[in-house]
């Protein structure tokens, strides 16, 4: 499925005492994608991410970034990764510019590069007006946005965000997701979350972590297509029109079942691609106005609940 793997994880296992958190976990993240790493609280998302960043040591298995192995305690792969932990902690006595200078210097960037990256990123994350305020006065949303800026300062090829939206209010969450949509143009993103609507908004591939391994894994549209049921949803101009058409529709050879309520009809067919057109043709013969037509998409939530349950 994956063309070019930027991040590849193979057979990763990790336990804390008797608790096995990761159990032979393997997956790949394709270059240029936004990978949604989904799982319950405590399912091992943060553990996986910390191993990728080199903050934790795995018992077995390997992590490669652009083909370079990640080794615990070494920082060779760190210049390729930007990391935003779930609750990023800063030095409150610094302002944003000073903080970005510190991490830029640690990442061995030149002063000129640090300066240009700082002004560009502060504008990207919308902190340019608060750049000279001490970080201790920042709200959670501002800290997350600064977290994105510090993670991108050294132009990494992979951005790892650990539940970046879970502590934010709706406005902050929407802002942050918008930011991730901008960021995806520059870098591959690995986003861990348990908020499925966030994944549907920004991710193109997902992995659902359950019991230490992936219970569901692939491109979001392919997964949805694979789990799609052959159901068409049609919205008519009125409830009366819908009611009038229900019976004749059931008479068509390829229609299995008709349901719905109000002005909506849900039609189960044999093959949604082939029969959809026939349904529409039939409706236009009946001289009825169709307000909306769509194929019932399985929601990520239903996919998730299927594999978790």
């Amino acid at each position: 499925m994956i063309k070019m793997a930027l991040l590849s994880i193979e057979g990763l296992s990790k336990s804390f005492g008797a608790l096995q958190v990761l159990n032979n976990l393997s997956f790949e993240v394709e270059q240029g994608s936004v990978f949604g790493f989904i799982g319950k609280n405590g399912s091992g998302k943060t553990t996986t991410m910390k191993i990728i960043v080199g903050l934790l040591k795995a018992q077995s298995g390997s992590v490669h970034i652009s083909g370079v192995p990640v080794k615990y305690g070494e920082t060779k792969t760190n210049h390729m990764i930007g990391y935003l932990p779930d609750v990023p902690e800063y030095y409150g006595f610094f302002n944003a510019i000073e903080y970005l200078r510190l991490v830029g210097q640690i990442a061995n960037m030149s002063p000129a590069k640090i300066k240009s990256q700082t002004s560009e990123l502060l504008e990207l994350v919308g902190l340019q007006d608060s750049a000279k305020r001490k970080i201790r006065g920042y709200s959670r949303g501002m800290k997350q946005r600064l977290g994105i800026a510090q993670a991108l300062i050294h132009e990494p090829t992979l951005l790892i965000c650990d539940e970046p939206t879970s502590a934010l209010d709706p406005q902050g969450r929407s802002d942050l997701l918008g930011l991730l949509e901008l960021v995806r143009q520059r870098t591959t993103v690995l986003l861990s979350t348990h908020i499925l609507t966030d994944v549907e908004r920004v991710c193109d591939a997902v992995g659902v972590l359950d019991g230490g391994k992936l219970a569901l894994y692939g491109k979001l549209d392919e997964l949805k297509a694979a789990h799609r049921r052959d159901t068409i949803v049609i919205e008519m101009e009125s409830a009366a029109a819908a009611q009038r058409l229900a019976q004749p529709l059931l008479g068509l050879p390829f229609v299995q079942q008709v349901g719905g309520g109000g002005n909506t009809l849900t039609i189960d067919v044999h093959n949604v691609t082939a029969n959809g057109r026939d349904v529409l043709a039939f409706l236009s013969e009946q001289d009825s106005t169709v307000r909306a037509y769509h194929v019932l998409e399985p929601s990520l939530e239903s996919l998730y609940l299927d594999v978790i349950a």
Binding site: I81, P85, E89, V103, I106
Partner: peptide, 13 residues
């Protein structure tokens, strides 16, 4: 507090 995490991920020894 966890303030060392970010500098460490940027390669601080």
């Amino acid at each position: 507090k966890g303030t060392l995490v970010l500098p460490l991920t940027h390669g601080l020894s």
